[in-house]
Design a protein around this nucleic acid. Sequence first.
RNA 1: GGGGGCGUAGUGUAGCGGUUUAACAUUCCGGCCUGUCACGCCGGCGAUCGCGGGUUCGAAUCCCGUCGCUCCCGCCA
Length: 589
Amino acid sequence: MDELARFAMRTNACGTVTKNNLGDEVILTGWVHTRRDHGGLVFLDLRDRSGIVQVVVDPTQHAAFETAHTIRSEYVLYITGRVKERPAGTINPNLPTGEVEVEAYNIKILNKSKTPPFEIDGTSVDEVLRLKYRYLDLRRADMQHNLMTRHKVVTRVRDYLNNNGFIEIETPMLTKSTPEGARDFLVPSRLQPHHFYALPQSPQLFKQVLMVAGFERYYQLARAFRDEDLRADRQLEHTQIDMEMSFMTEEGILELVEGMVRDVFEIADVKIPTPIQRMTYDEAIHRYGCDKPDLRYGMEIEDISDIVEKADFKVFANTVKNGGAVRGIAAPGCGTFSRSRIDELTEFAASNGAKGLAWIALEPEGNVRSPIAKFFREDQIEAIIKRLKANPGDLLLFVADKPVKASSILGSLRIKLADQIGLIQPDVFNFLWLVDFPLFGWDEDENRLDPNHHPFTMPRVEDIPLLDTEPLKVRSYAYDLIINGTEVGGGSLRIYDQGLQEKIFELIGLNVEEAREKFGFLLEAFEYGAPPHGGLAFGLDRLVAILLQKKTIREVIAFPKTQTGSCLMSGAPDTVTEQQLRELHIKLS
RNA sequence: GGGGGCGUAGUGUAGCGGUUUAACAUUCCGGCCUGUCACGCCGGCGAUCGCGGGUUCGAAUCCCGUCGCUCCCGCCA
């Protein structure tokens, strides 16, 4: 019933005291949320994890009454009293316990508290202070709710996976540095001078070995470490719901995972449509200019190359002539934007790599305002408006560049504008599987093919012939789950054919020895009967943040780090002693 | 590595070149109060305006630097 009271020094948890307890003598423990001292009568709101209950202290209880006057916020109390109905007219409908109160006979102060640096009950507090005194910040109702929701998500996930034949297996935190991917966190080995472990960027290789080992369905709530710059949705360490399955098709994996996502969102009473909408990578890039489109609003990108290729506007015409594209979006209701407001957009586009940003403002009355309109015939402008499905009052924005680049710049503008003009309905959730990712990208710096997901990703069967001819056109069995424009999870089917795997290594410029050096143990394992397998990993922090509609994952992590990687509470990172360094055979420069 | 924002009593904000002894709310401290629940009323303490330098007759206010936090680009297979 009241699990916080079971085995405990109290008889009830504060938030669970109701009319059912009328007349009961109870022992409560908790923190003083607020004190209302009326001189002749003292009210204490006592708070524990379960909630708040009002304690009333009457002068007839001399000792308790004396104590009550000395009590301050956040003191820890042990209260003995009786549950009473509140007098008529004093019921507090805002409190689950608002119909009753506890008349205290005895108050024992278990611990005092310094005056907190901010009010636990208060609203916005500077994040520096919140992080420094995180234990106080975490007492706030909002943070308690966030972490409890996180716990519920984890519980749902475990239940779902356990019921579907998965077993949870831990993989090492001290492992081998693999040069692909993000920057590794390194841990020096004391026993083996000049050798280092790396903290895992993900359990990728180990979970595939577990498939070879015959576990068939594995999961782990795994911490993953990446030494890259932090963002609102990126910490140095994050938690993955990591999964791998054998003898599954892509379709099977997506369906299985949809069930898990459905269960998770039930926590927030969000019904998700299944099957979850699918979209190919190519379509997303063309229509939304990114591989994680937010489909809660429109503003789709349209190609107008064919309309403008013969127009007098040289920038557009030449771009098309040289194999580029001219594309645009229609920003609803932005036709009245001032010149300076549009200049800001141009600057933003430039910071995303645009050479320029052309625009046509359709004023609400029907006038066209634009520095480039004079280069077009009326019928061309009409055609553009029609292509972009624009309405009076819209602002049309155009980028001329290489096709994909034009789309990606417009994609960034689309997101920025949607945010600026409030197009995003915050309590709507949009789920999307993005599928058919290209197997490779092109690494401009090193002038070679680069695996888009990772080197074990399986190319789509029908595209395998293209490996030799047009490898950049090869699609893969790789998929991402996108919620509201955030990549929440991603994975792939893996290669289990040695010949194919060697070919992929070759294509990305790894010879057999190099591949052995980097992934040897996995490749060796594959020689002993690797089953077809595949999997994915979810970012738990992002998932919970989206569920709770939080802007940053710091709100759903108990002890997060700042953008410079500091823990303001513990003071990490910090210097270490000479002695520690000596044992690790490390000399600082 | 680059671009933007913020930094003023414990907390949240206002003030943005001069009658400002830096304001308001809240917290905190003291007093009064037997039905409050953001308790109320009265009184009080509390800030050299992140730090350093510059411009100026005069700087919280303008400029430069620096530190911290934050958002974004790069980066994050």
